[in-house]
């Protein structure tokens, strides 16, 4: 029961973009940590600015 609830919560967070920053950090650590000249990860605030701008490039809402 608790497991299902946690799972639902996880889905809601992902759907809404609530955990976008956590995902970005995960991606950043996985893909960029090995090379030497990796730029440091963005702060939550800076990431969210970029994230929102990129979310609204192109057709995102329809009739």
């Amino acid at each position: 029961m608790l497991k299902t609830l946690i799972h639902c919560w996880h889905i809601i967070r992902q759907l809404s973009g609530d955990n976008a920053y956590d995902q970005y950090l995960k991606h950043h650590n996985e893909f960029h940590i090995s090379s030497i000249d990796t730029p440091p990860a963005l702060s939550r605030k800076d990431f969210f600015k970029l994230y929102q701008d990129s979310q609204w490039q192109g057709v995102k809402r329809c009739c």
């Binding site: 809601i12 967070r13 809404s16 973009g17 609530d18 976008a20 920053y21 939550r44 605030k45 990431f47 969210f48 600015k49 994230y51």
Partner: peptide, 9 residues
């Protein structure tokens, strides 16, 4: 954006 950045829910 400013008060609690990224806390969408």
């Amino acid at each position: 954006r400013n008060i609690r950045p990224g806390r969408v829910l």
